[in-house]
């Protein structure tokens, strides 16, 4: 098992391999959170968020939420990919911790009005307007809820997304 910093520096075209990421533990999260706070390392951020998700430590929910919501102006493709991975990571953490606060955050995230209320100050070049950005964030939150395997998440998906 390589050191965590070496692990997240690899290119994973099909996403971070869960089996390998699961070799790391809560002892490695401090290193990952430090790298996440460094915008010079933004190319690693998507790998870091996926790995944090697979580690599944409840204490990382708040920093992940802060990462998703933080930032200003037009962000890079790498940063947007990482924020999207953050919503999946919350689903993975919920998978490991049925009482995780990630459940409420992801449930709220299924309403695009919630994203408006969160006053997100970043946007990307991909989306023509903030509504398209928020619709994409809702979709990604729904995928996170799916991957959690949580029955409460399933109920929320049904309640919020049924036509």
């Amino acid at each position: 098992t390589p050191p965590i910093t070496t692990f997240v520096q690899q290119l994973f075209p099909h996403g971070v391999p869960q089996a390998q990421a699961s070799n790391y533990s809560s002892a490695d999260t401090a290193v990952l959170l430090t790298l996440l706070a460094d915008s010079k390392q933004q190319d690693l951020h998507a790998n870091i968020l996926e790995t944090l998700g697979y580690i599944g430590d409840e204490t990382t929910v708040a920093p992940i939420v802060a990462y998703i919501q933080g930032g200003r102006g037009v962000i890079s493709a790498a940063q947007f990919r990482a924020k999207s991975s953050g919503l999946l990571a919350l689903g993975y953490i919920l998978n490991r911790n049925p009482n995780s606060s990630a459940l409420l955050y992801l449930t709220d995230s299924l309403d695009h009005q919630t994203w408006q209320a969160r006053d997100i100050a970043w946007t990307t070049a991909f989306f023509p307007d903030l509504i398209s950005r928020d619709v994409q964030l809702v979709r990604q939150a729904a995928v996170g809820m799916t991957l959690s395997g949580s029955p409460q998440a399933a109920a929320a998906l049904k309640r919020k997304l049924s036509p």
């Binding site: 729904a142 799916t146 949580s150 036509p163």
Partner: peptide
């Protein structure tokens, strides 16, 4: 809403068999 159905099915599979088995 077939997308929602797909998501609910995947959620159930992961609930029953674990995320590890679902992904591998």
């Amino acid at each position: 809403n077939s997308m929602l159905d797909e998501m609910l099915k995947a959620n159930q599979t992961i609930n029953a068999h674990g995320l590890d088995n679902y992904q591998s």
